[in-house]
Design a protein around this nucleic acid. Sequence first.
DNA 1: CATTCACATAAGTGCATGCTTATATTTAAT
DNA 2: ATTAAATATAAGCATGCACTTATGTGAATG
Lengths: 104, 104
Amino acid sequence: MTENDIFKALADPTRRSIFEKLAGGRMNASALREGMEISQPAMSQHLSVLRTAGLLRKERKGRFVNYEVDPEGLALIAGWLGKYRAYWPERIGALKILLKDMDQ
Amino acid sequence: MTENDIFKALADPTRRSIFEKLAGGRMNASALREGMEISQPAMSQHLSVLRTAGLLRKERKGRFVNYEVDPEGLALIAGWLGKYRAYWPERIGALKILLKDMDQ
DNA sequence: CATTCACATAAGTGCATGCTTATATTTAAT
DNA sequence: ATTAAATATAAGCATGCACTTATGTGAATG
């Protein structure tokens, strides 16, 4: 779970799609594949990369495995972004919210 | 200047180092190379990737070319991070500590 | 207990990517 | 004008990476 793992994991558009899907709530690997035109092994490999990076957690549930967003990874990105705070544009709402939360 | 360009650009540790150096202020390509053990063409190529991604701006100054952080790219990352705001809060405390440590 | 289902792992393949050396380009200095 | 300095581009190469097919593992169901 390093900065490098995270950025490499997110460098792939398919993995970002998977991550985005999971932002909607926990889901198993088969459900994730629906409407994604991706093979089962490919999905499994992508999930492994995202998990190793600290962006996802997994939890076995019988013969299914549920995946969910792991805030640890997001915190690391936020930390990285925080280093460049001096350059954050004023107009960015999301950042303003982040900034506000961090200042408390 | 797409989300994909940005994440791919940041997936390389050398490029992240270059970007971090530039966070300290504008600098030309030769100055950036100092203490980095990287060839001139490699640096030029990295700068090109970062610029295409929208993470850097360039400005010719005589026979030097100064590079500086472009907030546009950071805004895009912030926008991406913003989509997962629902998962931020629990970790904001740790993030605050992280940022505090980095300020020293 | 045998089969089926959900998922993981192994091994191989083609393309992307970061490097190299060589050369071009642009501006400054002599 | 010539030369030198700063940077960019070209072409080739080696490694990484996302995919494939095939097979393994672990759990439910009949």
